[in-house]
C-alpha cells in the first residue's frame, strides 16, 4: 500500500546541486524554491497560473509554472532556476541578450521569461518573430511591450547557434 502523508521529504537536483528538504505536501513548488531554498529569482505574480513569473525548467527541458505544481511532485527530478542559468560574471547568452536589448524594465517577469526562452530555443533554435511570440505566450510582461524581448531571443539564438563567432557588445 502506498504511503500517504501531509509532510514529506523532497529530494531534488537543483541547479546542479542535490538537495533534500522537508515540507508540508501542500507546499507549492514556487514557494518551496523561494522560501525553503532561498531561490528568490522564482517570482509569483498571480494565483491562476496565468503570468509565468514562476517558470522553471524541469529535467533540463520542460518549462513549467512552479506555482501550479506541488513540491513533492518534483521529488527525484532535476530543476533549473534563473540562479542556475548564469551569474553576473558569467552570463548565459539569453541573460546577455536581455541586457543588451533592453528586454526588461522592472525585472519581475525576467527570470521566468528567460527560462521560457531557453525551453523555446532548445526546441527551436531558429525561431521566427511569430514563433517567438507564440512560444512565449505563457509569460506576461507588464513593462516592455515584448518587442525587445523578441529582439533578445533572436540575439540569444544567434549566439547559442554560433558560440565562438558572435560576441555581444557591452557598452
Amino acid at each position: 500500500m502506498a504511503v500517504s502523508s501531509t509532510q514529506v521529504s523532497v529530494h531534488v537536483k537543483i541547479n546542479g546541486q542535490e538537495i533534500t528538504k522537508e515540507c508540508e505536501v501542500r507546499t507549492l513548488l514556487a514557494y518551496f524554491l523561494r522560501e525553503q531554498l532561498g531561490l528568490t529569482g522564482v517570482h509569483v505574480g498571480c494565483d491562476t497560473t496565468s503570468c509565468g513569473a514562476c517558470t522553471v525548467l524541469l529535467d533540463g527541458k520542460t518549462a513549467i509554472k512552479s506555482c501550479t505544481v506541488f513540491a513533492p511532485q518534483v521529488d527525484g527530478h532535476e530543476l533549473l532556476t534563473v540562479e542556475g542559468l548564469g551569474e553576473a560574471d558569467h552570463l548565459h547568452p539569453i541573460q546577455q541578450a536581455f541586457w543588451d536589448c533592453h528586454a526588461l524594465q522592472c525585472g519581475y517577469c525576467t527570470p521566468g521569461m528567460e527560462l521560457a526562452v531557453l525551453a523555446l530555443l532548445q526546441r527551436n533554435p531558429n525561431p521566427t518573430d511569430e514563433e517567438i511570440r507564440f512560444g512565449l505566450s505563457g509569460n506576461l510582461c507588464r513593462c516592455t511591450g515584448y518587442k525587445n524581448i523578441v529582439k533578445a531571443v533572436h540575439q540569444a539564438a544567434e549566439i547559442m547557434n554560433h558560440p565562438s563567432t558572435s560576441q555581444s557588445v557591452t557598452l
Partner: peptide, 13 residues
C-alpha cells in the same frame, strides 16, 4: 493562495 491541507500519495503503479 494556498490549498487546504491534504495527504499526498505518489503512485508508482
Amino acid at each position: 493562495m494556498f490549498p487546504a491541507p491534504f495527504e499526498y500519495v505518489s503512485a508508482h503503479s
